[in-house]
């Protein structure tokens, strides 16, 4: 318990150090692909491997980013919020690699085929849309953009991440041939993360406790890192 309490009051310096360590850790999937690439480790179908793996990590970072706010609430570790922007940008980073792998390795800039894919194949339509929706969120992730937009509008815009998460899971689900175990696990994780928000929202609506400064605003905080 004391550890938890101490972690709750982690000094800003330590939180900053933790963030730097995490920054490096988040690059490990990329480092792994490079290492495997130079050591004949990408398997019989390296293009499929890279596309699957980048997609996996894009979804994973999306889920990790979405976990920050619930974890912050449950553990009461306010400093977790300092990590959220970086994690969200990593989701965007791996989504970019995923899209780049499709564009270059899979399609080799065959724009006609890509347009046909996006228009005709629902799983690509959904995946592509989710990727495009990530772009404004990445662009408006800077302090300057948050100030320019104003907190309310920024928060409203960034609620898009919920739709992107759902889109990402559907994209994965519709791609699978028969064994839906993996997308199902993602769907469960996302369901928990989004469900927690719904429950929290309803609770502060129905039972505005006098103890907390319980406004809906506090539920969806702005990054302060």
């Amino acid at each position: 318990m004391t550890v938890l309490t101490r972690l709750a009051q982690l000094p800003a310096v330590h939180a900053e150090r933790l963030k730097r360590i995490l920054f490096v850790l988040c690059l490990l999937p990329l480092a792994r692909w490079i290492w495997l690439g130079f050591n004949d480790g990408l398997g019989a179908n390296p293009v499929e491997f890279i596309i699957r793996s980048t997609g996996f990590w894009a979804l994973a970072f999306l889920a990790i980013t979405l976990a920050v706010t619930p974890l912050r609430r449950w553990l009461q570790w306010p400093w977790l919020l300092r990590l959220r922007r970086m994690l969200g940008l990593y989701a965007f980073f791996y989504a970019c690699l995923h899209f780049a792998a499709y564009l270059v390795l899979d399609q080799f800039f065959d724009l006609a085929a890509i347009v046909e894919d996006v228009l005709k194949r629902p799983y690509i339509t959904v995946g592509f849309t989710s990727f495009v929706l990530l772009v404004p969120l990445a662009i408006t992730s800077t302090d300057g953009m948050i100030r320019r937009l104003g907190g309310r509008r920024w928060r409203r815009l960034h609620r898009l991440v919920y739709a992107i998460g759902v889109g990402g899971v559907i994209h994965f689900w519709w791609l699978v041939k028969a064994d839906i175990t993996q997308p199902f696990l993602y769907a469960i994780a996302l369901g928990v993360l989004l469900g927690e928000r719904v429950v929290h929202h309803l609770r502060i609506r129905v039972l505005p406790s006098p103890g907390t400064s319980g406004s809906a605003r506090a539920a969806i905080p702005l990054p302060r890192d």
Partner: peptide
Amino acid sequence: VDHPRWSQAKERRIGEGLFARK
């Protein structure tokens, strides 16, 4: 005749590496 979810027009030959075209 495409698979409902993906194109059947091209194929990737296994063993041709990361930068081979379909």
